[in-house]
């Protein structure tokens, strides 16, 4: 096959990008916009959570513990338990939110977290109405 001069020079067309504005997202300085519906951290509306442990049952990673709550925010919570998620197990599949009968467990768009201690990755969902 004959190699043409054109084929050697064509890649230089990339140089035209020098004059364009950079496309980089400068993360720590500029936070990118959160996408609605992104599967990030859990939130749990305690005033509607009934402590049924459906989320615990469906979780294939056994990431969800049901722990005792200090004071009942929801009188219908029969067990007095609310879910806590182990982020050393979670895969953010959102099956737990799919099976939640009162729809109290949800995922928010925030998802960024780094820590130097592995024992800190137990997460108590924030009490936020969705």
């Amino acid at each position: 096959m004959k190699f043409e001069l054109k084929n050697s020079l064509a890649p230089l067309s990339a140089l035209s990008k020098i004059f364009e504005h950079p496309q980089t997202l400068c993360y720590p300085e500029v936070k990118s916009e959160t996408v609605s519906g992104y599967r990030g951290f859990h939130i749990n509306d305690l005033s509607t959570c009934i402590g049924c442990a459906n989320c615990q049952d469906v979780c294939m990673n056994e990431a969800i513990d049901m722990i005792a709550i200090d004071k009942d925010k929801n009188p219908k919570n029969n067990s007095g338990c609310i879910p806590r998620i182990d982020y050393g197990r979670c895969c953010w599949c959102s099956l737990c939110t799919d099976v939640c009968p009162p729809d109290s467990l949800k995922l928010e768009s925030e998802c960024i977290w780094a820590d130097d201690d592995a024992n800190r990755f137990l997460y108590q969902p924030k009490d936020k109405p969705c």
Partner: peptide
């Protein structure tokens, strides 16, 4: 496995207790 999750409660037991 990592420790720290021993406070997991059995929900059926808790309902019975309540």
């Amino acid at each position: 496995f990592r420790e720290g999750r021993e406070d997991n409660l059995d929900v059926k037991e808790e309902i019975k207790k309540r």
